[in-house]
């Protein structure tokens, strides 16, 4: 169970990215967060694993207060929270395998990992994860040799190495074409359905959100605008979230 309580984030330049946002996510739910660019979606996701420190409010995960965790505790919490990114955030010059293995850094002996040594069991696990996202044969390629969709799948494999219970996905398909978008979303859905991972995913397109979400949360200018089922978003709510001028764009 993930509880967000009165979360507020004001950046140093005075921008209020999140304004008193509260909601709860039961385990195993697929939650999609929608909203315009700059509505606070990324900030919200990054507050959950404290890549960004919130200004006020609390985040409780399985009754552990993430916002109060020390560096050491935070590392242990982050190990269980996978994250994938819009720009994939792979180390481009490293091999796919090394990228995937880096998802395991929170678990390995720090000294061994500094000389790039991972036990055989971990290497096998990495190959397994790559198998699962269908690109095992690319394990020894450099990450930047892969296509966008393949890179995002490496990102998923890296997150899977953490054996996460919660997956944060920050606009995972915004840099991909529609067909690839669906294939990446399908992997997330698979993890949600088969492994029971809780997924928090931010998306631009409402149509994608409708296809995959159990529940939709909408942010507008840092405030929670909508929290409910995908089918409850009618034209009126759509305009409230995306603004009067917005036109629905379907993504096949």
């Amino acid at each position: 169970m993930l509880k967000i309580e009165h979360l507020t984030k004001i950046y140093d330049n005075g921008v209020m990215a999140l304004n008193d946002v509260s909601f709860e996510v039961p385990d195993g739910q697929f939650v999609v967060i929608i909203g315009l660019s700059g509505s606070g979606k990324s900030t919200l996701l990054r507050c959950i694993n404290r890549l960004i420190d919130p200004t006020a409010g609390r985040i409780l995960w399985n009754d552990i207060d993430i916002t109060a965790a020390t560096d050491e505790e935070l590392r242990l919490i982050r190990r269980r929270i996978g994250m994938i990114f819009q720009q994939f955030n792979l180390v481009k010059r490293s091999s796919v395998l090394t990228n995937v293995l880096s998802g395991r850094l929170g678990y390995t002996n720090p000294l061994w990992s500094l000389i790039n040594y991972f036990p055989r069991s971990e290497r096998e696990k990495a190959l397994e994860k790559l198998e699962r996202v269908g690109i095992r044969e690319k394990a020894h390629n450099r990450a930047d040799e892969l296509s966008g969709g393949q890179q995002q799948r490496v990102g998923i494999a890296r997150a899977l190495m953490q054996e996460p219970e919660l997956m944060l996905a920050d606009e995972p398909v915004a840099s991909l074409d529609p067909a690839t978008s669906h294939s990446v979303m399908k992997y997330l859905e698979l993890l949600n359905k088969e492994d029971g991972l809780t997924v928090l995913c931010s998306l631009h397109f409402l149509s994608l959100a409708r296809t995959y979400a159990d529940r939709i949360i909408a942010l507008k200018e840092g405030r929670l605008m909508f929290d409910g089922l995908p089918e409850d978003i009618d034209d009126e709510r759509f305009k409230a979230i995306y603004g009067e001028d917005a036109v629905r764009v379907e993504i096949a």
């Binding site: 694993n49 890549l51 590392r75 242990l76 919490i77 982050r78 190990r79 929270i81 996978g82 994250m83 990114f85 720009q87 994939f88 955030n89 792979l90 180390v91 481009k92 880096s102 998802g103 395991r104 850094l105 929170g106 678990y107 990102g155 890296r158 997150a159 190495m161 953490q162 944060l168």
Partner: peptide, 11 residues
């Protein structure tokens, strides 16, 4: 980006 990603794994 990669820095953020690796930090997020608990490294």
């Amino acid at each position: 980006g990669p820095l953020e990603a690796i930090q997020a794994t608990g490294a």
